[in-house]
Computed example of a mutant assay.
Amino acid sequence: MNTDTGQLRVVATDAALAFLAEIQRDYPDILFHQSGGCCDGSSPMCYPASDYRVGETDVKLGEISGVPFYISGSQHAVWAHTQLIIDVVPGRGGMFSLDNGRERRFLTRSRLFGGGEACPLPEMTRPSGST
């Protein structure tokens, strides 16, 4: 989702885009979820789209190279005034994340929106296929 000034709520570094393309060669239909939980949940997790059920309160922040990026509603409230920047660092990914075992992992960095960049919160809509 764009802010009123055209700023995207979620973006990725070139390294993250290259890593994402590598993962997509093995798993073409994927999604990201940023839950904000402890341990593995504090990193952006990458899942096969068919293996992850988007929750009723999850918010879609945007897409990275066509890959949807969701954040839990509670985390969205905390990060509402920031742009999330997805990057890659050495290390192991979350246990169930597709970056696990590749000796690199996704990492979320952030930048505060300032000077009128903050935008209205997206509507909390139920993802298609939810009950």
Rank of each mutant, 00 (worst) to 15 (best):
M1Y: 09
T3C: 08
D4N: 15
Q7N: 15
Q7W: 09
Q7A: 15
L8P: 08
V10Q: 02
V11L: 06
V11E: 12
A15T: 04
A15V: 01
A16D: 03
A16V: 06
A16I: 04
L17W: 02
L17K: 15
A18L: 12
A18T: 11
L20H: 05
L20G: 04
E22P: 04
R25D: 14
Y27M: 05
Y27C: 08
Y27W: 15
Y27K: 10
D29N: 11
D29K: 09
I30K: 02
I30Q: 04
I30N: 04
F32G: 04
H33V: 14
Q34F: 15
S35R: 12
S35Q: 13
G36R: 07
G37E: 11
C38M: 13
C39Q: 09
D40R: 00
D40W: 03
S42G: 13
S43T: 01
P44N: 05
M45D: 02
C46M: 03
C46E: 00
A49Q: 09
A49G: 01
A49P: 01
A49F: 00
D51R: 05
Y52C: 02
Y52K: 03
R53A: 13
V54A: 02
G55L: 03
E56L: 07
T57Y: 15
T57R: 13
V59F: 01
V59E: 01
K60Y: 00
K60I: 02
L61N: 03
G62Q: 03
S65N: 14
G66K: 07
V67W: 09
V67A: 05
F69P: 10
Y70S: 04
I71T: 08
I71G: 02
I71A: 05
S72K: 11
H76Y: 15
H76E: 11
A77L: 12
W79R: 10
H81W: 02
T82P: 00
Q83V: 08
Q83E: 14
I85A: 04
I86R: 06
V89T: 08
V89C: 02
P90D: 07
R92N: 13
G93C: 01
G94R: 01
M95R: 12
M95P: 00
S97N: 09
L98Q: 00
L98C: 01
N100V: 09
G101A: 06
R102S: 01
E103D: 15
E103K: 13
R105G: 02
F106C: 07
L107Q: 12
T108A: 14
R109T: 10
S110H: 14
R111T: 10
G116D: 04
G116T: 06
G116C: 04
E117Q: 06
A118M: 12
P120F: 06
P122A: 05
E123L: 06
M124P: 03
M124H: 10
P127I: 03
S128D: 14
G129N: 11
S130W: 13
S130A: 15
S130H: 14
T131Q: 14
T131F: 14
